[in-house]
Amino acid sequence: MNSWLDVQTEVLRRLHNRVWKPGELLPAETDLAIEFGCARSTVNRALQAIAEEGLLERKRRGGTRVVVHPQRKATFTIPVIRLQIEQLQRDYGYRLISRRVQRPPLKLRECMKVPAGQNLLHIKALHTADQMPFVLEDRWINTQVVPEIATVDLKSNSANEWLVENVPFSGGDYSLSASMASDTEAAALSCEPGASLFTVERRTHTEYLSVITAVRLLYIPGYKMRIDL
Score class of each variant (00 low, 15 high):
W162R: 04
T42L: 13
T143D: 08
A39P: 00
S158Y: 08
E53N: 10
L218W: 03
E10K: 14
F198T: 12
V211R: 01
E86T: 09
A33Y: 07
P168A: 03
M180L: 09
W140L: 04
L106W: 02
A125M: 05
T213K: 04
A125D: 02
Q87S: 08
M180Y: 13
S182K: 01
E192Y: 08
Y223T: 15
L121A: 02
Y94F: 14
R65I: 13
N160G: 03
G172R: 01
R216W: 09
E29P: 06
S210K: 15
Q118M: 05
Q131H: 06
E161L: 10
L229G: 08
V215G: 00
G93W: 00
L56H: 03
V19P: 03
G222Y: 07
T42G: 07
T77W: 10
S182G: 14
K73L: 11
E57K: 07
I97Y: 00
T9V: 10
P168I: 01
K224W: 12
V164R: 05
T64S: 04
N119E: 13
L25R: 15
R100L: 14
N119G: 10
T30K: 09
M1T: 03
P221N: 07
S175C: 06
P133R: 14
G62D: 00
S177V: 00
R95D: 09
F198M: 12
L154C: 06
I227T: 15
R61S: 05
S175M: 11
L126C: 03
V80G: 05
V11F: 07
T204V: 02
V135T: 04
F198H: 14
K107A: 15
V146D: 06
P105S: 11
W162C: 05
R109E: 12
N17V: 10
E185A: 15
A159W: 05
